[in-house]
């Protein structure tokens, strides 16, 4: 399973989305599903860069993206602040304009767009995010 290392900077989101699109395309996903996968990967990587690595310079992000049978599996490993997904409140999608919260929307979209989203934090090896999407 090839591991790609990216600098934890927003300028590299393009390359992360390209990697996911390439693997998903080869794996036979539809263009619509590829867009969803790119969006989920972007939201995940953006969260790591913005929150896990907040205030950290020269950090990096290790990503794998592979097909296993009919599943596309994306993993992202970082050594930033641990992420507690249970702390992320479900955004209120019915709230009116003035009360609408944008925080938590990234995680919400990831969960909606992928079939499985798992977080693991380990003091030694850091944080590991695993996202799985089955080919429909």
């Amino acid at each position: 399973m090839p591991i790609s290392t990216f600098p934890a900077r927003f300028e590299f989101l393009d390359e992360i989305r390209d990697l996911v699109a390439r693997v998903a395309h080869e794996g036979g996903f539809t263009e619509k599903a590829i867009y969803s996968l790119q969006l989920a990967a972007d939201e995940a990587a953006s969260n790591i860069i913005e929150h896990a690595y907040e205030g950290v310079a020269n950090a990096s992000l290790q990503i794998t993206c592979d097909m296993q049978d009919d599943e596309l599996i994306i993993t992202m490993r970082d050594t930033g602040k641990p992420f507690d997904a249970s702390n992320v409140k479900h955004p209120n999608l019915k709230a009116d304009l003035s009360k609408r919260q944008i925080g938590g929307l990234g995680v919400y979209l990831m969960r909606k767009l992928m079939d499985e989203v798992r977080y693991e934090s380990n003091a030694k090896t850091g944080n590991l995010l695993t996202m799985i999407k089955r080919r429909g």
Partner: peptide, 9 residues
């Protein structure tokens, strides 16, 4: 071509 939640914000 593409917009993420950062653009929604």
């Amino acid at each position: 071509e593409y917009i993420s939640s950062a653009g929604f914000r």
